[in-house]
C-alpha cells in the first residue's frame, strides 16, 4: 500500500486470485477505504492473464469506493485488460477518457498470451431464456472481431447445445444452464454445464448422409452433426453422477 501527499492511495490487484489473495485484498482494501482517501488507484500491473475474477474484483472495489464517495482510477493497465473491459462494455466506467491514463498504461502488451475476453452466462432451460442468452452471446462475439463464418458457427453451436439440453436432458424449464466462453488468441473455448441426465455426445457416431436424409424425409437429428462439424474439439465429463460438463473448442487459423 502506498500513500501520496494528495491523499491518493494505491492498491495492487493480485496476480493470482486464490481465496487467500482475495481475502487479503479485501482486507487491505477495507483498511484503505477507512482512511477516507479522495482517490484510490487500482494498480493492475501484476495482472498477466485477465480473468472474470479480476473483473469482479475491480467491480467490487469500484462499488465499495463509490459507496464511500471515493474516486477510483486504474493504473498500469495492459492492452489485454483494456480489451476485456471493452468487450464487457466496462471501459468507459473504469477507464473513462483514455487520455487520463498514465503514459505507461498502454505500453504493456501481452495479447499473445492473454485471454482477451471471458464471458459467463446463467440462464434457464426455457426457449425465451435461450433466445435472450443467444442474443447476449452474439453481443459478446460481435466484439471479438472474429470471421463472419466463425461467428455464425459459434452462434449455432451455442443454440444447438442448449436446445439439446432443454429438449433432451430431462431438465425442467426452471433448471439452470451455465455457460462460459473464453476467447484466446487462436481459439474460443466454450463450456456448457447442466444437471440433466448423462449424455456423452463424443460417443455418438456421426454419419450424416444428406441424400439419405432427404429421401427418408428426415426432419430432426442434425444438431450434433452441426456441432461436431462447426467445432474442432469436444470433450464431455459427467461429474458426481449429476452434472454434465461439455467443453467445445473452436480454433482459428
Amino acid at each position: 500500500m502506498l500513500i501520496d501527499s494528495k491523499k491518493t492511495l494505491v492498491i495492487k490487484i493480485p496476480k493470482v486470485l486464490s481465496v487467500e489473495s482475495v481475502d487479503k485484498f479485501h482486507e487491505e482494501l477495507g483498511a484503505l477505504i477507512n482512511q477516507g482517501p479522495a482517490m484510490l488507484e487500482l494498480d493492475c500491473s501484476r495482472i498477466d492473464l485477465v480473468t472474470s475474477s479480476h473483473i469482479n474484483l475491480l467491480w467490487e472495489a469500484r462499488t465499495l469506493c463509490l459507496e464511500r464517495g471515493i474516486k477510483i482510477k486504474l493504473c498500469f493497465v495492459s492492452s489485454g485488460l483494456i480489451r476485456v473491459l471493452k468487450v464487457l462494455d466496462l471501459h468507459e466506467i473504469f477507464l473513462g477518457d483514455k487520455n487520463e491514463l498514465p503514459e505507461d498504461a498502454l505500453h504493456q502488451d501481452h495479447m499473445e498470451f492473454q485471454a482477451i475476453g471471458e464471458f459467463k452466462l446463467e440462464f434457464r432451460a426455457e426457449a425465451n431464456s435461450i433466445t435472450r442468452a443467444l442474443a447476449e452471446f452474439r453481443r459478446y462475439l460481435s466484439k471479438l472481431n472474429l470471421p463472419m463464418k466463425g461467428v455464425i458457427e459459434l452462434e449455432i453451436v451455442f443454440y444447438e447445445v442448449v436446445t439439446n439440453i432443454r429438449l433432451h436432458s430431462g431438465v425442467s424449464s426452471d433448471a439452470t444452464i451455465m455457460f462460459n466462453a473464453n476467447s484466446l488468441k487462436n481459439k474460443i473455448v466454450m463450456v456448457f454445464t447442466d444437471q440433466g441426465k448423462a449424455f456423452d455426445p463424443t460417443s455418438k457416431e456421426q454419419n450424416f448422409d444428406p441424400d439419405k436424409a432427404i429421401k427418408e424425409k428426415k426432419k430432426h437429428g442434425f444438431g450434433l452433426t452441426m456441432i461436431t462439424r462447426m467445432t474442432n474439439r469436444m470433450t464431455y465429463e459427467r461429474r458426481d453422477d449429476r452434472i454434465n460438463v461439455l467443453t467445445l473448442e473452436k480454433h482459428w487459423r
Binding site: E155, E160, P210, A213, K217, K219, F222
Partner: peptide, 17 residues
C-alpha cells in the same frame, strides 16, 4: 438471419414430397 438444425430439418424433410 439464423437457421438452426431444426430449421434445416424443416427444409430437408419436406423436399422429397
Amino acid at each position: 438471419e439464423f437457421i438452426s438444425s431444426a430449421g434445416v430439418g424443416s427444409i430437408l424433410g419436406t423436399i422429397e414430397t
